[in-house]
């Protein structure tokens, strides 16, 4: 069976890898793809909600990254730069899918009234201690897909991929305060959607 034959340990650290990438070293490009491919695929899959399109996004993103390596200025981590390229590729593809009829930033969800929490039941779930059921995982994934793309991308980068506020803002080319606003809106919307499921579960357990 075909597999990959790459030694990931030949570059001492990220600066050494970047030097090799800038020199056009194919082994360095293979290392970058092997090392970061899965992270970028995870982001693309959650933004697109479709495995085939996620694969195409990742291909487009790495082609773009390899061809414009010279534009990487080293001010951010390589992964942040790749997240930026991948997120852009995904959002561009979504925009095409929508046939340019709807701006990705509109509707941003929600006027202020939409942000007001309506589901106010408590949840009997301890995220740190218990394994999450398949059903809950599906509810969580489906909830992310309902977010408008700009909020979805902010949430995926910050809360699922675990980028810092600064890194996520850099990846989306927005200010940190704009990132925080999007994140807050996304979290409130997701809380509301999960509440429909988790509050009901907690009530059933209490019966």
């Amino acid at each position: 069976m075909a597999g990959l034959t790459i030694d990931l340990n030949i570059y001492a650290d990220e600066p050494a890898l970047i030097d090799a990438l800038l020199a056009g070293d194919k082994h360095a490009c293979a290392c970058m793809v092997k090392h970061h491919g899965s992270q970028m695929y995870a982001v693309a899959l959650r933004i697109m909600g479709d495995a085939d399109e996620a694969e195409e996004v990742v291909q487009d993103a790495f082609i773009s990254a390899c061809s414009k390596m010279a534009s990487f200025e080293g001010r951010s981590k390589l992964s942040t730069w790749l997240y930026r390229i991948t997120t852009n590729a995904a959002l561009m593809r979504l925009r095409k899918r929508r046939n340019d009829t709807v701006s990705l930033d509109e509707p941003q969800v929600m006027d202020e009234g939409d942000l007001l929490p309506r589901q106010l039941g408590d949840w009997n779930v301890d995220p740190g201690r218990q394994a999450l059921s398949q059903e809950l995982l599906q509810v969580m994934e489906a909830a992310v897909e309902t977010l408008p793309p700009s909020l979805r991308a902010a949430f995926i980068l910050r809360d699922i991929q675990g980028l810092s506020t600064q890194e996520a803002a850099e990846a989306l080319d927005i200010t940190e305060s704009a990132l925080k606003v999007r994140l807050h809106r996304a979290r409130l919307a997701l809380r509301e959607r999960l509440a429909g499921y988790l509050a009901e579960q907690s009530q059933e357990m209490a019966l």
Binding site: G37, S38, Q39, Y41, A42, L45, E55, V58, W123, V125, P127, G128, L132, L136, L137, M140, E141, F155, D159, I160, G162, R187, L190, R191, L194, L198
Partner: peptide, 14 residues
């Protein structure tokens, strides 16, 4: 809890 739940969401590998 919402934020913590998503921190534990497993990624599907490529």
């Amino acid at each position: 809890k919402t934020v913590l739940l998503y921190h534990h969401l497993p990624a599907e590998p490529m």
